[in-house]
Design a protein around this nucleic acid. Structure first.
Length: 271
DNA sequence: AGAGGTACCTGGCAGC
DNA sequence: TGCTGCCAGGTACCTC
């Protein structure tokens, strides 16, 4: 579910309810996520005040007291604000009760998400320190990406999905960006010239920017912090459209597995 | 160092 | 209808 636009949509949705709020209680119903929720996190957070709500890649970072909460939504996680108490479902693993009376609820059927705690600067945490640049920052440029790709044989689609190269580009947006840039997803990343990297970087930035503006992509059940779905799925040009007409040339869109992930592209437009 | 595969977990769906 | 197998938005970690 959540790629960068969905995480950013979530961040924007929950931020106004969290900043400056006192944490009354952390309720953990299921500790076993991607990694176990640390024992004693309840005590650490109790009576602390939430500062900033930031995002790094697909990680949400809540500064709380002397440390930071690192939250990842995994494949199926979502966070939403509840205005009143409501009976938790089987996948509602965590509630954060706030002084305002609102609560932040974490739901994650597949439990690939994470709730971790660090007292060090978040940039030094093992999960965050090797991350590549933010795709919407100036650090993510065509020159940078081209340099990273020199000599590499990895398919460009897998290449731009590597978090050490650039963060936040998941399967959906990798497919969409490559379609916009007219680049074949299986092409070796080292065999793409600087000019085409300009097109690709522009495509990645525009796809992500547009998706954020539309509240992300809801394929099954993604909802933002207020429980509303995203609308970018209406703008998807190739993802999930195998066999349908290419929006540019009407040729059928092909579906193919590249690096164990389903990939969609137009064999006529993309080279 | 880079590339490829595996693992974590549940729900939904196609096919029989 | 009910069972089985496969697939899914992520990514750390293992081996070659």
């Amino acid at each position: 579910m959540p790629e960068l636009p969905e995480v950013e949509t979530t961040r924007r949705g929950i931020e106004p309810y969290l900043v400056g709020q006192r944490i009354e209680q952390l309720v953990v119903r299921q500790r076993r996520l991607r990694w176990p929720i640390p024992r004693g996190l309840e005590q650490k957070l109790s009576a602390q005040t939430i500062g900033q709500v930031q995002r790094r890649g697909k990680y949400l970072l809540l500064s709380v007291g002397k440390g930071s909460l690192i939250i990842h939504l995994g494949m199926s996680g979502s966070l939403r604000i509840l205005r009143q108490e409501s009976a938790p479902g089987p996948h509602d693993h965590v509630d954060l009760l706030l002084g305002s009376g609102y609560r932040l609820r974490f739901t994650d059927p597949r439990r690939f998400g994470a709730w971790l705690w660090t007292t060090r600067p978040t940039g030094q945490h093992a999960l965050l320190k090797a991350l590549g640049p933010e795709p919407l920052s100036d650090d993510f440029s065509a020159g940078y990406l081209h340099q990273c790709a020199i000599g590499r044989k990895l398919a460009v689609k897998n290449f731009i999905m590597q978090s050490g190269i650039v963060v936040g580009v998941g399967n959906i947006y990798a497919n969409e960006a490559l379609f916009r840039a007219a680049i074949h997803p299986a092409r070796a990343s080292g065999r793409i010239g600087p000019q085409r990297y300009i097109t690709l970087v522009t495509a990645i930035k525009s796809v992500l920017t547009e998706a954020i503006a539309q509240g992300g992509t809801t394929l099954r059940d993604f909802v933002d912090g207020e429980g509303k779905p995203g609308y970018f799925q209406q703008s998807l040009q190739v993802y999930g459209r195998g066999g349908a007409a290419c929006p540019r040339c009407t040729n059928p869109i092909r579906e193919q597995r590249i690096g164990q992930r389903s990939s969609f592209y137009c064999p006529r437009c993309q080279h």
